[in-house]
Nucleic acid binder design. Structure first.
Lengths: 111, 111
DNA sequence: CGGTATCCATAACGATACTG
DNA sequence: CAGTATCGTTATGGATACCG
C-alpha cells in the first residue's frame, strides 16, 4: 500500500492524503466527534461544544464536511430556522478509523 | 473512549488531539512514510522525495518529529557532515495506525 | 436561529542567500 | 552536506457587525 505511494512519487494522489484532506484543519475532527457522540446536533449547540470556534469557521467547516459527504445537513423550513447535523454512514465508517488514533494517543502520550 | 472526551468538555487534553498535534502540518506524514519505506534516509535524499519542500520547512519538521520521539537522528561527526534519519519504535507503532487511514481513503474515495 | 460579509491577526510555508 | 538567517507570501482562523 504505502510502498507504491513513494515509488510513484505521487503521494498527493493517494488515498491517504485524500483522507487527510477531509479531516484537516483545527476543528473538523472535533465536529465529527460531537456528531458521533450526540448523533443529531444543531448549529448553535455545536458551537457551544466546540469551545471557541467562530460562526464563520464553523459554517465553513460544516459546508466542507457536507460536501465531502461525511455529514448530513437537514434543514427545516420554518421561522426561526432549524438545522440539524448528523453523521452519514460514510462519516461513521471514518470515525472507526479515527478512534484508533485516540487509542494510540492515550497509550503513547509522554508525561 | 470518545464519550468521555466530549462530556469533559476537554477535547484539547485528549489522546486524540495529542496524536494529531504530532502529525499535523503539510509534510510530517509524508516524511514519516518515507522513513517507513526507506528506513534510513539522509537530509537531502528526503528533500528529493518530498517534491517541493524547502530546507527550512524540512529542518523544522524533522526537529519536531525528533523532539516528539517519532524519529531518530543520527549524526556522523565528519566533513562533509552526514546525518541519517529513521523511525523510532514509537514512530513505527504510529505508522500502523496511520496506514488504516490509507486503507479507508482507498476504499472511500469518491470519483 | 443559522448563518454572511468584511476586515484583521497569526502561523505555516516558501525563496534566496549563506555557512561550518 | 546539512543545515541557519532573513524576508516575503499564502492559508487559516477569529472579531465584529449584520440579515432573512
Amino acid at each position: 500500500m504505502i510502498k507504491s505511494y513513494i515509488e510513484n512519487a505521487n503521494f498527493e494522489d493517494t488515498g491517504f492524503s485524500y483522507t487527510l484532506s477531509l479531516i484537516s484543519g483545527k476543528h473538523k475532527m472535533v465536529i465529527l466527534y460531537c456528531l458521533m457522540e450526540f448523533e443529531v446536533v444543531r448549529f448553535n449547540e455545536l458551537r457551544r461544544y466546540l469551545n471557541k470556534i467562530s460562526d464563520k469557521t464553523l459554517a465553513t467547516n460544516l459546508k466542507e464536511l457536507e460536501k465531502d459527504q461525511l455529514i448530513i445537513r437537514k434543514e427545516y423550513p420554518q421561522i426561526p430556522p432549524k438545522v440539524e447535523y448528523s453523521l452519514s454512514e460514510r462519516g461513521k465508517s471514518l470515525m472507526e478509523v479515527l478512534d484508533q488514533l485516540c487509542v494510540w494517543g492515550e497509550n503513547n502520550r509522554m508525561r
